[in-house]
Structure formats: structure tokens, C-alpha cells
Amino acid sequence: MKQNTILWHGEMTTERALTRRGMSFLSSGIFWLTAFLVLPSLIFVVLSFAERGVYGEVIWNFSFDNYKRLAGFSSFGWTPDYLLILGRSVVVSLVTTLVSILLSYPLTFFIASRPARNRFVWLVILIIPFWTNIVIRTYAWFLLLSPDLPFARFATFLGFIPDGSSLYPSAFAVYIGMISDYLPFLALPLYSSVERMDWALVEAAQDLYASRYRVFMQAILPQTAPGLTVGIILTLVPTMATFVVPDLLGGAKYMLVGNLIQQQFGTSRDWPFGAAISMALMLLTLLSMRIYRRKGNTVDII
């Protein structure tokens, strides 16, 4: 076969030689992804079609039972329980992300407007939660939401909860915990964009009669979109799968898909069903990314 010689960055070479060299550079990465992402995922795909034995062992029988069960079909008829948990997870994840966005903009603008000397201190305050275990951070809310502290007392005063009870377990406590845990994941990438913002564009928009909304949409949002996108991915994806926060602050009534999966691999010892739920979660996550991509043009991670 005739090889076309091409000039590549001042070097005479052939397409095949270039491809070979490129593949050798990529090989270590491909190996890593294959060994630790593709293969385990494939095992899960296979596992999700297997069956649970009486003692919790895996029986390699191909069936769609796990997916049927997830969709709510059981021998006792149809129940929406699992679908409700999945739906609730999506809502919690979206609300957490949205509230984090709304909080992150004022927060990052505040930090970026501090004098350079003090900015570091504010950033450290924002970063410290990263170094703290999520369980410890969540436990901290036990204390803060306990019956004797002002938060619970105020809620009692307003008549939301009976006298002498704490603010957890509740959906409210889950949201508080989720937002406080995941806010830094959104605020930090956003800050990197806000810090580099060209304020002349904001002034230009003001000079051109733009309303506050228009200034934000045309001068601030396009400039902060890269950081915001990374932040949204870093919040949306883990909040979908989280189980620590709802486990501790939500109680048995407020189960999310993360808890459901944890249960299958833990107490229920039903790995095939757990794998099926994981597949569903992965599909949901990819779907939400896909929707976000369509809305926000491109996802620039780097």
C-alpha cells in the first residue's frame, strides 16, 4: 500500500506512523480507563441482568426482573415506590444545584471584590469544607438543628414543628445538608471565572442602557459560563448519587436513590438489583448532562 508522506509540525512522516505514535501516547490512559471504568461498568451491566439467590448470592440467570422491579412491577401488583425515589433524587439534585448557583454568585462576587490580601482568608473559609469529611460535616447539622438551638425554636415558634423536637429528620434538613455540603463544589469553579472577569464588559452594558437582568445575561453570564458549567457538573453528578446526607438527615421516610443502592449492596444483599438501580442512575445522570449540554451549547470542562 502506498503511504502518503505528510508534513507535520516541520517533520516528514506518514499518517500511519503518526497514528501509531499517537496511540502509544494514549495507551496508558486507555489502559487505565479500560481497567477501572469500562470493565467494572460492563460487569455491572451484566450483573444487573442476573438474579439474587435465597442467601444473597448471585445466580447467573439472564432476566429483566430487576428492571421490572425498579419500574414498580412486583408479584403484588404495581407500586410507584422506586420510581418516586428516583424522581425525588432528580428533584433534590436539581434544587440543590439551583440554590447553590443562586448562593454562589453573590458569594464569589463578594470574595472577588475583597482586597487581594484578605481574599485568601475568604477562599480558605470556602475551601476548608473540602478537607473535612462529609459525614462530620453532616453530623454538625445534628447539633445545629437540635431542639434547644434557635433554628428549631424559631420553627417551633412559627408552628412548623411540635415543641421540643429537632428540625431533622426532614426534607428541609436534607436540603440544608446537601446545599452546605455541595456549595463549595459550585462556588470554587465559579470563583475562578468571576476572578478573571473583564469588568469593562459590565460597564459597557451599563453604558448601553442595559437593565440589571440584561447586564447579568449579556455581560456576566457569558464570561462566567466556563466556571459555572464545571460547578454544575461537580454538583449535579454527586448529588444524584449521594447517600450520606439523606441517610443521616432525611431518616427512613426521605430515601434517595443513593440510599436505595447502598441498601441493596448492604443489608438487602441484592447485588443484581443494586446494579440495575446504578444503571438507571447512570442513565439519568447522562440524560441530565445531555439536556444541560443542549441548553448551554457546549460543556467546557477544561
Binding site: D198, A200, L201, E203, A204, A205, D207, L208, Q218, A219
Partner: peptide, 10 residues
């Protein structure tokens, strides 16, 4: 209206 030093085009 202003013509900015950096032009500040969107």
C-alpha cells in the same frame, strides 16, 4: 455613550 479603551465588545 463611551468607547472603552479595551473596546469591551461582547
Amino acid at each position: 455613550n463611551t468607547v472603552f479603551q479595551s473596546y469591551a465588545l461582547f
